[in-house]
């Protein structure tokens, strides 16, 4: 599978481990609930670790763990749920998170410019054929009125 990271189309190395599935090797991400439950065990695994955040989650709950986390996935149940925009902002601006923040799930290519401004640097589009579209929409505007993460 391919995604966009830092404005380039790349092959994705991560796999998401469902709630009841056994962790496997390589780079894996898990839900926040699972992270809280299995953190100690996960920290022993060899690959990199990620956490998938849903809108109702609080990113404060992983704030103390961010040094162990290389990927935060923002999982959109619907493009209209704007909470994830604030989660991204909080991760970057309040908790100084430097790793990858990736948008996934049901968001629109037309939202990626805003997402990039609040600190999202990777995009897994709903439809694979939208990769070029997402890439071009990252440049929808050349000017901004307000400061944000970017």
């Amino acid at each position: 599978m391919q995604i966009i990271k830092d404005k380039k189309i790349i092959d994705d190395t991560w796999s998401y481990i469902a709630e009841d599935a056994e962790p496997k090797g390589g780079d894996i991400s898990v839900s926040l609930a699972r992270w809280k439950k299995d953190k100690q065990q996960l920290l022993k695994s060899s690959g990199k670790l990620g956490v998938r955040i849903r809108p109702a989650d609080s990113v404060e709950e992983i704030a103390a763990d961010l040094e162990h986390i290389q990927l935060v996935e923002l999982d959109f149940p619907s493009f209209a749920d704007g909470r994830l925009f604030s989660h991204a902002w909080l991760l970057r601006s309040r908790y100084n998170y430097q790793g990858e923040i990736r948008a996934t799930g049901h968001y629109m290519p037309d939202q990626v410019y805003y997402l990039s401004r609040v600190g999202v640097n990777a995009f897994n589009p709903e439809k694979a054929e939208h990769l070029p579209l997402v890439l071009s929409h990252l440049n929808d505007f050349t000017v901004n009125y307000q400061s944000s993460v970017n």
Partner: peptide, 14 residues
């Protein structure tokens, strides 16, 4: 007006 216009974080409010 300027601050609210295309604010990246607050365009999909409840």
């Amino acid at each position: 007006r300027q601050w609210t216009t295309l604010h990246p974080e607050f365009d999909y409010l409840p």
